[in-house]
């Protein structure tokens, strides 16, 4: 983990509310599932975002403009800078997994992109299930298709199977020895109840992002753990919802 200044290389709109932000700077090695905390001018706290990709001193963040800070970010131009904490938290555990299933709900697909790349580097082509509210919300489909077998679902059926992520998993008959899920809390909870063989990437409102304030502590079977330090990725069988 490191505090550093990053420079905007590009900031591209992918759909009405989703953007792809590429930042460059002095970036330490990134593990999939780790996140970055980006300062936004005019807002007191930094905003946490999964690192969706990392290559040659650049990181990619995929973000949805939902509030003041992310709407401000949508206006960032090439050459703008942001103070950032990078490479925060423990990432996904890819060890001893031969048949991974990656499950993304909405903007939660972001960290799965780097995860899929890591599996590719291990010679594994992962199954990737992407669930969105509707077709408008979808992004990065072709990018994911280049890395794995992509299955789609939407709540209204405008793209892929009509239903939520867990229903889609059953519909597509997807098998796995471990699943990796990131998305809204109800989705993560449903998956944790469906199978213990998984890893969940959680969100929490954060005060610091580096373990100092206890603002992000969740309950686990092993006692309280911080989303920003021991997380954001947790074993499905340890999280107490």
């Amino acid at each position: 983990m490191k505090l550093t200044t990053l420079e905007v290389i590009s900031n591209r709109q992918l759909n009405p509310r989703t953007y792809e932000l590429i930042l460059s700077g002095d970036i330490p090695p990134v593990k999939s599932g780790q996140f970055a905390d980006l300062a936004v001018k005019g807002w007191f706290l930094k905003r946490p975002f999964s690192i969706a990709d990392c290559e040659g001193g650049r990181i990619t963040v995929l973000y949805k403009a939902i509030g003041g800070g992310t709407r401000e970010m949508a206006g960032w131009k090439k050459g703008d800078t942001t103070d950032a904490l990078v490479c925060i938290g423990e990432g996904f555990d890819t060890s001893a997994c031969l048949k991974p299933l990656l499950v993304g709900g909405g903007i939660g697909a972001a960290p799965l992109y780097l995860l899929a790349k890591e599996f590719n580097a291990m010679g594994i082509t992962p199954d990737i299930l992407l669930a969105f509210r509707d077709k408008e919300e979808a992004y990065y489909i072709d990018e994911f298709k280049a890395l794995g077998n992509v299955y789609l679902s939407t709540d209204n059926g405008s793209l892929g199977y009509k239903g939520n992520a867990l229903e889609a998993l059953k519909y597509y008959n997807l098998e796995f020895d471990r699943y990796y899920a990131c998305g809204p809390l109800p989705m993560l909870k449903a998956f944790a109840e469906y199978s213990r063989q998984g890893q969940l990437s959680l969100e929490a409102r954060m005060g610091c992002g580096f373990g100092a304030c206890m603002g992000c502590s969740i309950k686990t079977k092993g006692g309280p753990k911080r989303v920003c330090k021991e997380g954001p990725v947790f074993r499905a069988d340890e999280v107490i919802f």
Binding site: F44, L45, R205, G215, S217, I218, P224
Partner: peptide, 14 residues
């Protein structure tokens, strides 16, 4: 353990 999440809310100057 303390209080359930969320435990942090941002303000303009704090």
């Amino acid at each position: 353990y303390g209080n359930p999440l969320p435990r942090i809310a941002e303000c303009p100057s704090g």
